[in-house]
């Protein structure tokens, strides 16, 4: 896994601090072309990993990446599911039709597999169908890992359905030959489940890690203590806390934590992308020395 990973929030107008910033961002990235141009720049300056939610809007962008040899060494890290897609489909079509809609290959067989698991109440086959459905978008591409969205990870934690986390991880390795990763807003709880309860070795966890402790639950101190153990592969996101911390300070804090292995960041303008990348490279190389 690269130390620096480019994210996608800016493409879809996600900003936790300000609605106005969200509006400005969604104006900037109106078309697939706008997004592709940014990724072209990211690739050019040597950021070779892109982590993204499996939005429908990314489909034409991924298609262009696939057919462009400059992106041959560019690694994709999908995060799934894009929950709204399923939410809307379930409301519009009902649960069985929704599962059919998103299951690849033979519609009838896939439908039966999903319906069967509903009858036997086993969540694992449904999870596998949905992973396959999301991965259709990435067929033949350079996928480095598959991540589970925090809303799903954290819901499974909350309900105590933690074996699904284990099964997800097993499935991505078996079917796609890549490691699974987990987004979470509950780093400490998840770490305890994956490492201590499920006995997973060096699981990948991506969570908010920033100087002001924003959304580091239950507390910044607790998260830092777990990072310090360094028995998970930790990816820091929201290092700028949606802009509350200036880039230099943000990077200095993350670089000071030995347990942080990679950083996921997003920015809209080339200048900001380059600046953050250079700051991160400097901090992460010093972290190693």
């Amino acid at each position: 896994m690269d130390k620096i990973i480019f994210g996608d929030n800016q493409f879809f107008g996600v900003n936790h601090m300000s609605e106005q910033t969200s509006i400005k961002q969604s104006q900037k990235f109106k078309s697939a072309d706008d997004i592709f141009k940014t990724l072209e720049y990211v690739n050019d300056i040597g950021i070779k990993s892109f982590m993204f939610t499996t939005h429908d809007q990314l489909e034409p962008v991924l298609e262009r990446i696939k057919n462009d040899s400059r992106f041959n060494d560019f690694k994709l890290i999908p995060c799934m599911p894009y929950a709204h897609k399923y939410g809307n489909a379930m409301v519009e079509l009902g649960i069985f039709e929704a599962i059919n809609k998103f299951t690849p290959g033979n519609k009838l067989m896939a439908g039966l597999k999903g319906v069967g698991s509903l009858i036997t109440s086993d969540p694992v086959p449904i999870m596998e169908l949905l992973v396959d459905s999301e991965m259709k978008l990435l067929k033949g591409m350079n996928v480095e890992a598959i991540f589970l969205q925090n809303i799903v990870t954290d819901l499974l934690i909350g309900l105590g359905l933690t074996n699904v986390l284990y099964e997800f991880s097993r499935y991505t390795e078996k079917k796609y030959g890549v490691k699974a990763g987990f987004f979470t807003m509950n780093h400490v709880k998840l770490h305890n489940i994956l490492v201590n309860d499920l006995g997973m070795v060096n699981p990948m966890i991506c969570s908010d890690i920033n100087k002001i402790g924003f959304r580091m639950n239950p507390t910044q101190k607790d998260v830092e203590a777990v990072l310090d153990k360094h028995d998970s592969y930790n990816i820091a996101m929201s290092i700028l806390a949606s802009g509350a911390i200036n880039p230099a300070e943000a990077v200095k804090y993350v670089g000071s934590l030995k347990g942080v292995d990679s950083v996921l960041f997003g920015a809209s303008s080339p200048a900001h992308i380059l600046q953050t990348k250079e700051l991160l490279e400097d901090a992460m190389s010093r972290q190693n020395s």
Partner: peptide, 15 residues
């Protein structure tokens, strides 16, 4: 003032 200026710690976060 922004949300990031406030203490937002919770024991468990979902929504």
């Amino acid at each position: 003032l922004y949300i990031t200026d406030e203490n937002t710690d919770v024991n468990y976060y979902l929504r």
